[in-house]
């Protein structure tokens, strides 16, 4: 189980910004997320970065109920 944070195009593709998903690793959680949200989300996930608890992380990392997995699509810049 981990807390999933989806932002920008990832949130839009999934139709939800926050979720809790079963899984013992980042990979397992994201596989379940793809099953839950569909191929549109999978397309965004493919080009996104994954942060674990606020820092860039590896997909094989183990996660627990207090861990946050953030899906961060490419950014568009904060201003001009």
């Amino acid at each position: 189980m981990a807390r999933l944070l989806l932002l920008g195009p990832a949130r839009e593709a999934a139709g939800i910004g926050n979720d809790e998903i079963d899984g013992n690793s980042v990979t397992e959680v994201l596989q379940e997320a793809v099953r839950r949200y569909g191929t549109g989300f999978e397309d965004v996930l493919r080009i996104s970065q994954i942060w674990i608890n606020g820092e860039p992380g590896e997909s094989r990392t183990s996660v627990g109920p207090h861990d946050q997995i953030a899906v961060l699509p490419p950014i568009s810049g904060g201003c001009n």
């Binding site: 970065q49 699509p73 490419p74 950014i75 568009s76 904060g78």
Partner: peptide
């Protein structure tokens, strides 16, 4: 981590200048 959506009359879209 900041995403920008452009809004115009009758529509909107994410800014296309995406980068990691």
């Amino acid at each position: 981590p900041m995403w920008k959506r452009e809004l115009w009359q009758g529509g909107s879209a994410w800014s296309e200048e995406g980068r990691a």
